[in-house]
Computed example of a mutant assay.
Amino acid sequence: MSAPTGVTARDGVPDGAGEPPARLRFAALGDSFTAGVGDPVAQGRRGWAALLADALDDGSRGVEFRNYAVSGSLSADVRARQAPAAAAFRPHLAAVVFGTNDTLRHPFDLDRLAHRMDEVCGQLAAGGAVLLTACLPDPGAVLGLPAVLGRPLARRQSGVNAVVHHLSARYAAVHLHACDPAWVADRSLWSPDRLHPAERGHRKVAADFHGLLTARGLATGAPPGPEPRLPRPGRAASVRLLVTEGAGWLARRSTDLLPQLLLMAAREAGHAALGTTARLDQEHRRTVLAALAAVRPVPPR
C-alpha cells in the first residue's frame, strides 16, 4: 500500500535507503458502529475497521491496527479519551466516524458537536494522518420509527452529516457516503437489533472504504469479501438479541432521549396539523448554517 505523502520522511527512512517500508499504522475512533457491534467473532467483536485493516495488508508492508472505538461513546468521549491516545500512536490512516450517539441524547448541541469533530480531525491531521470519514443514516429510519418520531431524529442526523461533509472537504478526507435510502432498505446489512450493521453490513463498509482508498492510490490488493462467514442469526437468536441488547438500549435512553423525543414529536404533530412543518425545516437549516459558520474556516497546519 502506498503511504501518504511525508510518511517516509516522518519515519526517518530516507528515499532510496533500501530499508523495508515502515508498517502502516491504522487507528479507528468512534462508537459501536466502529467498535464492531453486530459482527461477533470468537474473540469478541470485529467490525468494518478490522476487516479493512486486514485487507490493507497486501504483503508489501505490515499493518498495525488499533481500535479505540467504544460502544456508546459521545463526541466528548472521542475528543477527550480516544483522540489523544490515537494521536500518540501517530497513525498514517485514522477512521473518525462518530456523532450518531449525540443525536440520541438530550440536550443535543450541533455547534458543540461540530467543534469537537473539528478538534479530533485537526489533532489527527496535524500528525500527518489521512482521515476516513462517513455520513450515516438517521437512526429513526433504521429503527423504522413513525414519521412523527423519526423526523426530528432525521433532522439531527442530517445536521451531523452536514458537519461531517464540511470537515471531510476541509481535511481532504476519504469520505464514505453511507446514508442513502438503499442502506436502510437492505435488511441483510443490519443486525436484528436494527441499530448496528450485521456482518454483511460491516463487510460492505470495509469494501467501500477500500475502494475509495484504492482510487486515491492509498490501497492495493483485494477488498474484503462481501459474503459473511457466519450464518445470520435465526429467529430465536434474533429475539434474544432484541430482548437483551434492544431492551437495554431502550431502558438507558428512557431517561434522556425518550422524554425529549416525545416533546419533539408533539411539536412535530402540532406543526403538521397547522401545515407549518416548513418552519421546523427552516429552523433546522439555520442551526446547521450557524454550526458550519462557527467551525474554523481554515484547517490548522
Rank of each mutant, 00 (worst) to 15 (best):
T214C: 05
P299S: 13
C179I: 06
L189I: 08
L132V: 05
A87Q: 07
R10A: 14
L213M: 07
A293S: 14
A134G: 04
R216E: 13
V142R: 01
P224H: 13
V41M: 06
Y68E: 06
A185Q: 12
A236V: 15
W249P: 02
R151G: 01
S32G: 04
F89I: 03
E283N: 12
H92L: 08
G140E: 03
P139N: 08
A182N: 12
G150K: 02
A141P: 05
R187V: 09
A3I: 04
S60G: 15
G127Y: 01
V148A: 13
R79T: 09
A237E: 10
R170C: 09
P226S: 14
L124R: 00
V70Q: 14
R25K: 13
G44D: 12
L212S: 06
R240C: 13
L292T: 10
R116A: 10
R232N: 13
P21Y: 05
A206W: 00
G221S: 10
H271A: 10
R155E: 01
L242D: 03
P91G: 06
A35E: 08
R112D: 08
L218G: 03
D15R: 14
D77S: 13
L167R: 01
T100F: 13
A125K: 00
G127N: 07
G225A: 15
R240H: 13
R229S: 11
P226E: 07
M264Y: 07
A125F: 03
P297S: 10
A9W: 13
V78A: 07
L93H: 04
A172Q: 14
G275A: 14
V97M: 10
A86I: 06
D15F: 13
D15M: 13
Q43G: 11
P107Q: 08
G225N: 11
L74R: 15
H196E: 05
M117N: 05
A293H: 14
T34I: 15
E283P: 06
R194I: 09
A251I: 15
A86M: 07
T100D: 05
L149Y: 15
H166M: 06
A88M: 03
T8S: 07
V288P: 00
H196N: 04
L195D: 02
F33K: 02
P223K: 09
F108G: 03
T5P: 07
C179P: 05
A85E: 15
V130A: 13
V205T: 06
D39W: 01
V96S: 04
F89D: 00
A169W: 04
Y68S: 03
D58A: 14
P14L: 10
V148G: 06
E199Q: 12
A86K: 00
A134V: 05
F209M: 07
V163G: 02
R235H: 09
D281Y: 11
D102K: 04
L24E: 00
H284N: 09
G221E: 04
T287P: 02
R151P: 03
P233S: 12
G72K: 15
W190D: 00
A219R: 09
F26P: 00
V37R: 00
F65A: 03
G275S: 13
V160L: 08
E245A: 15
V295R: 12
L56D: 00
T276K: 08
G248Q: 05
L189F: 09
G59N: 14
R235K: 12
